[in-house]
Design a protein around this nucleic acid. Sequence first.
DNA 1: CCGCTAATGGTAACGTGTTTCATTATTTCT
DNA 2: AGAAATAATGAAACACGTTACCATTAGCGG
Lengths: 135, 135
Amino acid sequence: MAAPQKKTRSTAQKALIRSALETETRFVSAKQLHRRLEDEGASVGLATVYRQLNALARGGDADTITIAETQLFRACSQTEHHHHLVCERCGTAVEIDPPSEDWMRQVAASNGFEITHHVFEIFGLCADCRAAATD
Amino acid sequence: MAAPQKKTRSTAQKALIRSALETETRFVSAKQLHRRLEDEGASVGLATVYRQLNALARGGDADTITIAETQLFRACSQTEHHHHLVCERCGTAVEIDPPSEDWMRQVAASNGFEITHHVFEIFGLCADCRAAATD
DNA sequence: CCGCTAATGGTAACGTGTTTCATTATTTCT
DNA sequence: AGAAATAATGAAACACGTTACCATTAGCGG
Ligand SMILES: [Mn+2]
Ligand SMILES: [Mn+2]
Ligand SMILES: [Zn+2]
Ligand SMILES: [Zn+2]
């Protein structure tokens, strides 16, 4: 039988957080998003920002990466598996394809492993940040 | 002129930590290594374990990965750049080659990025852990 | 409206990892 | 072999991102 599946309610905070994240092209932290919301006059608790960002990530509506012990989020509507090319200065990110799945499975199998998942992110400097770094 | 390069002293704790890490084939956390040391009768402070593991990593004598907000360490004598295939159950790891550097640079360049570094780890279950998971 | 309960938000608690600083011990100097 | 200089240690305090708690608010079906 189907799981009880508790029903979710639509709240103002949920909508605010979602739309704030969607207008952001960079990976942002919960704290950053929280500050931005209160700068815009909205009053949303930090705990709620964490909750909603995690919910979005769980539901596949946001990607997350961790940089310097801090989890960053970015809205994502893409359904296929992908990774990111991230500017380590400003957080701007571009979606990229994963390395060959066949190659990974091959490497794993030859060592007796069965793959469960993988992490892969390329970090660098975007054109803008490189230009800005010209002393 | 050459950097002042402060001189390092050899201590019992440093040797203990280094050799304990070297006998370990799995990725281990500072806490795990600390517990193991005190189980063996050695009395070493946790802060010292952190310090020495970080020093080993900085010096290239240890690899580190982060899993579930915890930093794990493993001795490594390899000098070339590499990655790991890690059993997410027992921590056993195998060193693997990186994906094509040319391909990564190509992807980055076509988006105006200049690569600084990348993270890549494959997680899975090793043969032993798969066998043990047979209900 | 009413009642049920999901959701919120302030705060306390948590876990990992770093910093501080008094104490210990290794190296160097005489 | 002392003695002086100072790197290293260790216990506890701290930093900080994230989660848990729980009393209060508010969405939604009736
Ligand atoms: Mn994405
Ligand atoms: Mn290695
Ligand atoms: Zn940038
Ligand atoms: Zn295993």
